[in-house]
């Protein structure tokens, strides 16, 4: 546990000592702020965060890979992966530490959006249920997106390649929901729809916590983290 902590703590320090965390945080807050305000500008606005949550998932497609791209690709570029893999740390502990660090950044970014919630509760009377559900969904979605980014970071020494590939995977997963509508075959369309992150996120934004969706995001995260550990192990065989 101490080693996971050491890895995570080091990465968190790097995030905050470089401009990266601030830039990503700024973009995230700026854009989600726009989504939050947009609906409230309606003549008869609804006191909800649905639009904010939907916007945040889209923004995370771009921002999650930007956060994760450095984590393992840079170790490979600098050669420090050789140190990491010869230190008395298990491969999964390395992955856990790295993942934990970026999860903390995600939570910090989400915490800053608490400002919107505060505004909403001060000036209106929103239903609190969808707010909790939305935040849970956003966290689960973000966690999965970061796991995907971490895998692509483990597969290359080029950070740009890592980010672009992760964005690609996230975009495909997001939009298969739309593709499902175009497929006539009912079974096929169902499978494609079930893969989609968007299809599983929508209920959260509406205030529904369905275990099916929770399990989906946890599985997605677990699969990609597992693959990341394997990818890190694969370094030893090259």
């Amino acid at each position: 546990m101490r080693r996971i902590q050491a890895v995570a703590w080091k990465e968190i320090q790097v995030y905050f000592s470089s401009p990266m965390a601030y830039i990503v945080g700024l973009i995230f807050l700026g854009l989600t702020g726009f989504f939050f305000v947009r609906d409230l500008g309606d003549p008869f606005p609804e006191a909800s965060l649905e639009s904010f949550f939907q916007g945040a998932t889209l923004i995370l497609i771009l921002l999650a890979p930007t956060l994760t791209m450095r984590l393992l690709a840079e170790e490979r570029k600098l050669g420090t992966v050789e140190l990491l893999l010869t230190a008395p740390v298990r491969d999964w502990e390395v992955v856990a530490g790295k993942y934990l660090s970026v999860l903390v950044i995600l939570l910090a970014m989400m915490a800053m959006t608490g400002y919107y919630v505060l505004l909403l509760f001060v000036f209106a009377d929103p239903d609190p249920g969808p707010v909790y559900a939305g935040y849970l969904g956003l966290f689960l979605y973000g966690a999965a997106a970061l796991a995907i980014g971490l895998l692509t970071s483990a597969l290359t020494s080029n950070q740009i390649v890592s980010a672009v590939v992760a964005m690609g995977i996230l975009l495909v997963l997001y939009f298969t929901d739309f593709a499902a509508g175009a497929v006539k075959n009912t079974l096929g369309s169902r499978i494609i729809a079930e893969i989609s992150t968007k299809a599983h996120f929508d209920d959260f934004a509406l205030g529904v916590i369905d275990t099916k969706h929770v399990v989906y995001f946890i599985c997605l995260t677990a699969i990609f983290l597992f693959l990341t550990v394997r990818a890190l192990e694969a370094h030893r065989w090259k």
Partner: peptide
């Protein structure tokens, strides 16, 4: 085992003490 690979693996953005602190906690 203590290991110094051929290409010295360093986190170039860290300070000497910061780096050693990190490596020390990794090494237990």
């Amino acid at each position: 085992v203590g290991y110094l690979p051929e290409t010295v693996p360093l986190y170039t953005e860290m300070t000497v003490t910061g780096y050693l602190k990190y490596m020390g906690s990794l090494r237990g």
